[in-house]
């Protein structure tokens, strides 16, 4: 077991960001943290990264205590923080060289790894450029390359692909998948359900500092979602009103989003016909299968019955 947490808690003054969570992470798996803004994902990542002492509870990383042995643990971690912390006074290549030195690696080893890593994230042609003018996506890729300079056993990625274009995201997914194949353990947070579905073996949905659910993406969909989902979009004027009306609709569950109403049902077409019979006429409608996003909305969103 690589990481073990029991009753892990983080408080800032009297605000509780992480409210006693339990989890175990095993070697070689990819573990995801989903959750709305402020759920406590980054706070958890920082505790695992040994840059934030837990307020209470137990936490063991690689069998060590993060407060006492933080330095030794960090030597074996790779970290991609939510906000880039690249060294803007240095070039792309120098960022990797200098970062490797922070780990006390010999220069020769760092030089070899730097060349390989720049290829790995497709930045070799920008090696001599300053970091500052790079686009957000390129900076993100450099941050990922930097986190790998010490060949970490555990890679902690806090929203690794936020702000990337679709191509760049696929590049990052591919790279992360390859790392996983090589046996690197991934811990990641994300707001993208497709990313979680693609990369994570197991995931937790976090809300208000607690776990609302945990399991594999497939489990979660089976457990928290109906076979089909009917998406309805009404005239904005009628949106609230339609929501009220559909409250008592015989669906498994209904979800009122800012722009759409989702009905969780067994048969989408049947449900659409039934909606029309109540006299409501949606501007657009769509019947689709349940996804992880529905699970997320169910667990953390606003429900009609609220």
């Amino acid at each position: 077991m690589l990481v073990r947490a029991r009753g892990l808690t983080k408080r800032f003054e009297d605000f509780t960001a992480v409210a006693g969570i339990d989890f175990d992470l095993y070697r070689g798996e990819a573990f995801g943290f989903l959750g709305p803004n402020g759920a406590g994902k980054s706070s958890t990542m920082r505790m695992i990264g040994c840059v934030s002492p837990p307020t209470s509870g137990e936490l063991a990383i690689l069998g060590l205590d993060p407060v006492r042995d933080g330095s030794a643990i960090r030597a074996r971690l790779g970290v991609v923080p939510q906000e880039d912390t690249l060294d803007v006074e240095l070039t792309v290549r120098e960022n990797l060289l200098v970062y490797g030195r922070y780990f006390g690696l010999p220069r020769k080893v760092i030089r070899e790894r730097t060349a390989a890593l720049l290829d790995f994230v497709q930045l070799a042609d920008r090696a001599a450029d300053k970091v500052d003018p790079l686009s957000g996506g390129l900076k993100r890729r450099l941050t990922i390359a930097r986190s790998l300079i010490n060949e970490p056993e555990i890679l902690i990625l806090d929203e690794p692909t936020t702000g990337l274009d679709p191509q760049a995201r696929h590049v990052v997914w591919d790279r992360l998948f390859r790392l996983k194949q090589r046996g690197v353990t991934l811990i990641l947070t994300t707001h993208y359900m497709d990313e979680a579905e693609q990369l994570c073996d197991r995931l937790v949905v976090m809300d208000h500092g607690r776990f609302a659910a945990e399991g594999s993406p497939r489990d979660l969909i089976a457990r928290y979602c109906s076979p089909e989902v009917l998406e309805l979009r009404f005239d904005p004027e009628l949106h609230e009103q339609a929501g009220d009306k559909l409250k008592d609709f015989p669906a498994e569950r209904a979800e009122l989003l800012a722009d759409r109403i989702l009905l969780y049902v067994t048969d989408g077409d049947e449900a659409l016909a039934a909606v029309r019979e109540t006299g409501l006429e949606p501007l657009t409608s769509l019947v689709r299968r349940g996804t992880l996003e529905d699970v997320f909305l169910h667990l953390t969103g606003r429900r009609l019955e609220d």
């Binding site: 330095s71 971690l77 923080p81 912390t85 690249l86 060294d87 922070y102």
Partner: peptide, 14 residues
């Protein structure tokens, strides 16, 4: 601003 120390404290440096 540069967050240099944040970056460095993620490494073994104390």
């Amino acid at each position: 601003y540069a967050k240099l120390y944040d970056a460095i404290l993620a490494t073994p440096i104390r």
